[in-house]
Design a protein around this nucleic acid. Structure first.
Lengths: 334, 334
DNA sequence: ATGAAAGCGCTAACAA
DNA sequence: TTGTTAGCGCTTTCAT
């Protein structure tokens, strides 16, 4: 049996409106005498009144629920480090703001893929707005979401939908900084090993690399193109430094180098564009520190600002990216 | 601008009730002529109608939201393997059932602890029911939740609140099986190193140990009581086998043994009551396989059954626990 | 076969 | 200082 404001109004011999004022803490402001307030509070206590958040949402238009939409399960079989840190930030920010998180597991279809509009009505409506996470996006769906004027923020740059708001990592600046380190150390012939997927985050980093190495000798290849012969090719082309786009690639390069009897940084300098695996052989590579937690926090905050009308729907935010030097960028012997 | 049923009723020249029937799919059942249905559907399409889930829940329907309440952040700074696998199961089951998950981050207070009723209103009401996770529970709050007739299921046995539903791991059977293995190998003097917290899951395992070793020589001590001298004490007491309650303890025992020049299983047999750390020294210990994922799945299913009135509020479910033998239980030399 | 009306629990104008 | 009223968007009798 739910206790409503009406019940305690009756018990305290006041109107429901007065109860509402007390509940929302605006009693004095609304001009309720201290004695009446006391009576109301006592009645609330005795009857065990708890405001109904759903009714509040209906009335106020906000549920305080922040959606988290991912095209993959949030809790994968193998804890995916990549997602995790974003989610830490998202949960922290939500907690700070007094908001709850909704994970849209219902959007998962039989084949394991998730779709916003598959179930007919968008379940995202349950949340005031959503944070969109993950690589494998459906541009059409998200475009539609934007057209429906549903407030959402993409974690990571998201060009395909012009109206989308996002929080991006400043890969440009970060990659540029790493290249400058290479330059300072005398390297002018640099290889870049990219991931196989041609998704935005990957492309962004490749472009940043290309832009920062104008005038240098460069070689860009993808993960699958990297094989046993690659190291030889590099040596022949005079390549003295390597950038691996992600930790897996760094591992791959390290293993190939080890087999070829080459050492980092004695034989070539190296850096990785994300934090390497803790226990891997490339753990000591110089690398970028992607501020995932910060990005998560800012995404939630940006969403809140958009909901409050303080920032426009398509606002973008960018987070600086630090780098962590572990001595795998050595001076080039000229 | 939200499009309401009223708007499309007007557009289609029908009453709001008819629209509602079409929306909920009970149009024919309610006796709406096919032609009218078509007109309504067209209007919905044109105006871009989306049902408001909040209004629906207020009216008494289901929101399709399953709460996940934890007394600690769901996404901890250091990924906590213990939680993770439960959540994998919970998300899988929710996806299967077409339900979404709500993580109650809003209940987090300044000190980092979470409380259901701290904010005055219980935000759990946003979900049809909730799964309760984590060790550090507030019995009073949960008792109150039960009194409020809020449907919830505890992950893990939860005696303190009699009305609580739960899904437990059959530690009794599992511990008994391990002890029987020890017995078969001839061990009759067994030590047990428990965790420091005296929480239920820990107590349950200790009791199971005590119950299964009647007539044996046993020694039960807690993690902090275990020190450099313990191994000597065990040898003096004729202890030939050890059970570690959790992976951390197993590690501790292994390290102490290594320092003392003792080997498992040559010098003593050993088993751990949870899966040991992958990269730890005790990785090869025989151990229990706690079916966390299964427990997560069943929790969600049990909650659904309770919501549907198919199972009573305080129903309990128990999941068998397998064990994995890695040869650290050796025959005792008699 | 369709419509009118009540009400879920709450808040915010507006009256008194 | 307090009470009355009108909804928020929806579902569900009960009339028509």
């Amino acid at each position: 049996m739910r206790v409503r404001q009406r019940d305690i109004a009756q018990a305290a011999g006041v109107s429901q409106a007065s109860v509402s004022l007390v509940v929302s803490g605006r009693a004095s402001e609304g001009g309720i005498s201290p004695s009446t307030q006391d009576r109301i509070r006592t009645a609330m206590e005795e009857l065990g009144y708890r405001p109904d958040p759903v009714a509040r949402s209906l009335r106020g238009g906000r549920s305080g629920l922040v959606g988290v939409f991912t095209y993959e399960p949030v809790f994968p079989a193998r804890p995916d480090e990549y997602f995790h840190e974003f989610l830490v930030g998202i949960e922290m920010a939500a907690a700070d703001r007094g908001q709850d998180l909704v994970l849209f597991s219902s959007t998962q279809q039989a084949d394991g893929r998730r779709s916003i509009y598959a179930g007919g009505s968008s379940r995202l409506q349950h949340a005031d707005g959503s944070v969109i996470l993950g690589m494998h996006r459906d541009d059409d769906e998200l475009a539609r979401l934007a057209k429906d004027e549903y407030p959402f923020v993409s974690v990571g740059r998201y060009d395909p939908v012009p109206e989308a708001a996002w929080v991006e990592v400043d890969y440009d600046g970060a990659v540029r900084a790493i290249i400058e380190d290479f330059h300072r150390a005398g390297h002018r012939a640099i290889a870049y090993v990219a991931g196989d997927n041609a998704r935005l985050p990957s492309l962004a980093r490749r472009h940043a690399f290309a832009a920062s190495t104008r005038g240098d000798t460069t070689q860009i290849l993808t993960e699958t193109e990297f094989d046993e012969n690659t190291l030889g090719t590099w040596r022949d082309s005079g390549i003295t430094a390597v950038i691996a786009e992600n930790p897996d690639i760094a591992e791959k390069v390290e293993r190939a180098a080890a087999r070829a009897g080459l050492r980092v940084p004695d034989d070539f300098s190296a850096a990785c564009l994300d934090t390497p695996l803790r226990s891997g052989r490339s753990a000591s590579w110089s690398h970028l520190l992607i501020p995932k937690r910060e990005v998560g926090i800012r995404s939630v905050n940006l969403l809140a600002a958009i909901l409050d009308g303080k920032l426009p729907r398509g606002h973008h935010d960018s987070v600086q990216c630090a780098s962590h030097h572990l001595g795998t960028i050595a001076a080039e012997r000229v």
